[in-house]
């Protein structure tokens, strides 16, 4: 459905070259749901603009829905839907009119466009505002209108640039429900960008992480997390015993990034102190490991055997942010803020 090789886009801003997208290779097959994840300015929108024929690439090739975007942009436009990052509707147009015109721009007959518009107004909860002009809509209503506009012609390949931005949790869930149904009922291929970590994690079957214009990882969220980040185990042991506990942890084959820390008295509540001992604080050992839940009992037994008291133990499954951190040394959350 999407095949790119060395797709590149540079911008010239005040005599300086901005390398927005630096030679990305993408292969998305029919029916896939792929999330493009990356911080602000990573090159997500620029990539999408090239794939949707809005922006000619500086270098590289892209075949989208079977059409070369350089030689047959019209063919690609017929087959794709695009929901951009901005507002797709014009301020002074009525909601339903915009939908009907969009359908007719895609070659639907007037009757078919009206039927489809009413269908989408209903599914996206916009019936009540159908005759209002777009500028009077709330941000979330407007976003839903954008989404309806992109779906009017039932494209076989749908691009969405930050679709959930501005939606409340209820409408976000609705949107995802709708996207899931599109795939199940019509086999629509979906390529979306997001910087919501949880969204990419739970919804996408495949995540491509992009940073500074390059794809730095591409896999299922589960495998990315398992391979690149791993689970994080934190054990709390008695005061002064961190070093020995760390030694024991280091014997676990996949353990890495072992660090030790100290908890002040009371910091972790009553559990931090062993029964019958004064609360004098505790030490912690934190490390990453594969398959944490299976490793933890083993570790506790080993600590026991070494006569070390385990006060508390915790396994945290990784998030995609941990993956990004492992890959770039930066947190996606921090990157977002500095970019925004």
């Amino acid at each position: 459905m999407i095949h790119t090789r060395g797709l590149t886009r540079h911008f010239r801003v005040k005599g300086e070259v901005v390398e927005a997208v630096r030679g990305i290779d993408i292969d998305v097959e029919e029916g896939e749901l792929v999330a493009f994840l990356g911080p602000n300015g990573a090159g997500k929108s620029t990539s999408l603009r090239m794939l949707t024929t809005l922006l000619p690439p500086t270098a590289g090739t892209a075949i989208v829905a079977g059409c070369d975007i350089r030689t047959d942009p019209l063919g690609a436009r017929r087959r794709i839907g695009y929901i951009g990052q901005g507002r797709g509707s014009g301020d002074q147009f009525r909601v339903r009119d915009e939908l009907v015109f969009q359908g007719r721009f895609h070659g639907l007959s007037r009757a078919a466009a009206r039927r489809r518009a009413d269908e989408l107004l209903a599914t996206l909860g916009l019936e009540a505002v159908a005759t209002r002009v777009a500028s009077t809509l709330s941000g979330g209503q407007r976003r839903r209108l954008d989404i309806a506009l992109g779906l009017m012609h039932r494209p076989e390949l749908l691009f969405l640039d930050e679709p959930a931005t501005g939606l409340d949790p209820h409408n976000r869930a609705n949107l995802w429900e709708h996207i899931r149904r599109l795939r199940e009922e019509h086999g629509t291929t979906i390529f979306l960008t997001t910087h919501y970590l949880d969204e990419a994690d739970t919804m996408a079957e495949r995540v491509m992480i992009i940073d500074h214009g390059r794809v730095i990882a591409d896999d299922t969220p589960e495998r990315l997390k398992a391979d690149l980040a791993g689970d994080r185990i934190t054990v709390t042991v008695g005061k002064g015993e961190a070093a020995r506990a760390a030694e024991i942890a280091a014997r676990i084959p996949t353990a890495h990034e072992i660090t030790t820390g100290r908890q002040a008295p009371d910091a972790a509540g009553p559990a931090a102190a062993a029964p019958g001992r004064p609360d004098e604080g505790a030490d912690t050992v934190t490390f990453r490991v594969k398959n944490g839940p299976a490793v933890l009992p083993e570790l506790v037994r080993a600590l026991d055997a070494a006569e070390l008291w385990t006060v508390a133990a915790e396994v945290r499954r990784p998030t995609l942010d941990d993956v990004f951190l492992a890959l770039t040394g930066r947190s996606l959350r921090e990157s977002d803020q500095e970019g925004a």
């Binding site: 695009y82 901005g86 014009g90 721009f105 070659g107």
Partner: peptide
């Protein structure tokens, strides 16, 4: 210019029109 700034021009440019 307003359409280009808001995003609706972009949306129409991606149609086969």
């Amino acid at each position: 210019l307003v359409e280009a700034g808001g995003g609706s021009l972009e949306r129409v440019l991606v149609t086969p029109l």
